[in-house]
Design a protein around this nucleic acid. Structure first.
Lengths: 158, 158
DNA sequence: GTAGAATCGTCAACGTGGTTGTCGAAATCG
DNA sequence: CGATTTCGACAACCACGTTGACGATTCTAC
């Protein structure tokens, strides 16, 4: 069973998906480093995206990212130290500490979006617009709906 | 510039690639857990693949995986403790310690290959054999040749 | 043949990211 | 008002990565 095709072993598929992801992320951060964000790590971009323009709290951030509130809090600490995020008190609830983007963080987020668009355009040039769209549609069809699971280090390593 | 398509923002592409990778790996390990390998982590399968049937040394393993020999040695330690690998002296060079698969490790590796073939077959059933092959070909065209870079935790996080 | 250089594996220290458990402060519920 | 819940922080721990150092062994060159 499994009707394996000898020249297309199944284990190559995940490696190619990972390589594609990694290529995009590496290219993004090489370009971001050139544009004034050399400190940004792959993980950080996703966290900034999860914080969003309106801000959040550490607990809510942890839920969005699929990690514990403590882990989210630690990552926020580092992004605060790097100048991408800032904390503020919630006027309506003294327990909560709001996490907001700084101008530097907003700049990084905007540039990330622009570079991702450029990289996708590069793939469209290399493969054809329709192939990239088909690739996205196919992946959407075989993966769960919510793509925001950011606990990659702990997930992969254990 | 960048000619962004509003309904297909560039940042979705890496998320979909990651989601595809993650879906395959999660399904693999769910099935491996059922088949007697609940301790195996995503990282470990790749390491076993890199060790291969003939065995290696820690230094060579590190080079194959793109990590330091110390990191490779630590991972080998854990896989030895789990019963997947064993160490032996090299009769020709007393400095080297050969790293070999145990029968349990070989069993895990064989089952991984079989499950990956089944999962790829599942995608072929859902999408069509030609679409999966096209997806692989497209990814091969836009990624560097060697897909074996296993330093994912350190790469992503820190 | 032996002195010097290169290689292998290990140990130690450290950074980053993750986890669980605890705990005080503040809000909410009854 | 008291009991419960929630939020954020602290501590301890594990997994994985790094660099630097150091014996032990092998290779190389004189």
């Amino acid at each position: 069973m499994a009707t394996a095709e000898p020249d297309r072993p199944g284990f190559l598929l995940p490696l190619l998906l990972l390589a594609g992801f990694r290529t995009l992320i590496d290219d993004l951060h090489a370009e971001l480093a050139r544009q004034g964000h050399p400190e940004l790590r792959p993980l950080h971009g996703f966290v900034l995206q999860a914080v969003g323009g309106e801000g959040t709290t550490a607990t809510e951030l942890g839920q969005r990212l699929g990690v514990s509130k403590q882990a989210a809090g630690k990552t926020v600490d580092r992004l605060v130290a790097l100048g991408y995020l800032e904390r503020a008190d919630d006027p309506h609830d003294a327990r909560r500490k709001l996490v907001r983007m700084t101008p530097h963080g907003l700049d990084g987020l905007r540039r990330s979006a622009a570079v991702f668009d450029q990289l996708r355009q590069g793939w469209a040039t290399a493969l054809g617009t329709d192939r990239v769209a088909a690739l996205e549609d196919d992946l959407r069809a075989v993966t769960p709906a919510n793509p925001f699971r950011l606990d990659v280090p702990g997930w992969f390593g254990g």
